[in-house]
Amino acid sequence: MAEKVSGPASYFPSIEKKYGRPISEWKELIRGSGLSRHGELVTWLKQEHELGHGHANALVAHTLQEDRSAGSP
């Protein structure tokens, strides 16, 4: 039985379906934006890429958490 996805990643299938880009591409855009704060990244995704607030928030939260985890010893 497949494990149930929770948290920000639970939004990923609907983000890919609605906006037509894979999650990896969204994460590259976020990381290449030159922005670093959660709120400014969410606002940028909403304004520049017309994402809804929940989708933008999920992408940013997951990406920043990934980056923090990668930087941990």
Rank of each mutant, 00 (worst) to 15 (best):
M1C: 07
M1P: 06
M1G: 11
M1L: 12
A2G: 06
V5L: 08
S6H: 14
S6V: 11
S6M: 10
G7L: 01
P8L: 04
Y11A: 04
Y11H: 12
F12I: 04
F12A: 04
S14Q: 07
I15T: 00
K17N: 06
K18L: 12
G20T: 08
G20E: 03
G20F: 02
R21V: 00
R21E: 02
S24N: 15
S24C: 03
E25F: 06
W26M: 01
K27Y: 15
E28W: 04
I30Y: 04
R31N: 11
G32R: 11
S33G: 06
S33K: 06
G34V: 09
L35H: 03
R37T: 12
G39P: 00
E40G: 03
L41A: 10
T43N: 12
W44K: 07
E48C: 02
E48G: 03
H49V: 00
E50L: 10
G54C: 05
G54H: 08
G54P: 07
H55R: 02
H55C: 03
N57Y: 04
A58R: 01
V60Y: 04
A61S: 15
H62R: 10
H62S: 11
T63S: 14
E66Q: 11
D67C: 09
R68H: 12
R68M: 07
S69Y: 11
S69H: 15
A70Y: 10
P73D: 13
